[in-house]
C-alpha cells in the first residue's frame, strides 16, 4: 500500500515538474516573440526615419512635382502586426515613388547625400529583414510547440493560440523567385 502511494506521489511530482518546465518554456518563447516584435518596431522606425529624410530631400529638389503624393504613414506604439505590415507596405510604396521621381533628376541621383540615403535604406531594410526573420523563427517554434502533444494540453488550458507571421513584402518574395 505504501509502495503504491509512493509510486502515485512520484508520478504526480513528475507531472508537476513537467507542467512547470513546459509552461516556463512556452512563456520564455512568448517573451522571445515580444522581444523580436520590438526589434521589428525599432527597424520600422529606422526605416521610417530614413524615408522621411529621403522624402524631404526629394521634395526640396523637385518642388514643382506636385503630382507626387506620398502615402501618409503613422507609426505609433502598440501597433498590431497587421498595422505594422500595412505601414511597411506604405513605406515601400513611398520608396518606389521616390525612385520614380529621382529618375527625372540625374544630379540628385548622383549626389553624395542621396547616395548615402540610398545606402542607409539598404542597411535598414537588411535590419528589418533580420528582425522579421527572428520574429518568424520564434513564432514558428511557438506554433510548433502548442500543436504538439502533450504540450498542446497546457497551451489549450492557458488559451494560447497560434501567432501570426510577419509577412515578407510581395516585392521581396518576387526577388526570391527571380533568384531561384
Amino acid at each position: 500500500m505504501e509502495m503504491l502511494l509512493l509510486v502515485v506521489v512520484v508520478i504526480i511530482a513528475l507531472i508537476v515538474i513537467w507542467y512547470i518546465c513546459t509552461l516556463n518554456k512556452l512563456n520564455r518563447t512568448l517573451v522571445k516573440i515580444e522581444e523580436a516584435d520590438s526589434g521589428i518596431d525599432v527597424a520600422l522606425t529606422k526605416r521610417y526615419d530614413v524615408l522621411v529624410k529621403m522624402m524631404d530631400t526629394v521634395k526640396a529638389y523637385a518642388k514643382h512635382e506636385k503630382e507626387t503624393l506620398f502615402e501618409v504613414i503613422n507609426l505609433r506604439k502598440g501597433m498590431t502586426l497587421d498595422e505594422k505590415n500595412a505601414a511597411n507596405a506604405k513605406m515601400s510604396a513611398n520608396l518606389e515613388k521616390i525612385n520614380l521621381v529621382v529618375e527625372n533628376y540625374p544630379e540628385l541621383k548622383s549626389s553624395d547625400n542621396y547616395k548615402m540615403l540610398q545606402q542607409s535604406v539598404i542597411e535598414v531594410e537588411e535590419h528589418l529583414q533580420a528582425a522579421r526573420r527572428m520574429y518568424n523563427s520564434n513564432v514558428s517554434i511557438f506554433n510548433q510547440m502548442i500543436v504538439s502533444f502533450p504540450t498542446s494540453i497546457i497551451a489549450n488550458s492557458k488559451k494560447m493560440v497560434k501567432k501570426t507571421f510577419f509577412e515578407a513584402e510581395e516585392t521581396k518574395k518576387k526577388d526570391v523567385k527571380i533568384q531561384l
Binding site: 522571445k32 522581444e35 523580436a36 526589434g39 535590419h127 533580420a130 528582425a131 526573420r133 527572428m134 523563427s137
Partner: peptide
C-alpha cells in the same frame, strides 16, 4: 550576445 545581430 544579441540574437538580432545573429539574424542580421
Amino acid at each position: 550576445q544579441n540574437n538580432l545581430d545573429a539574424f542580421y
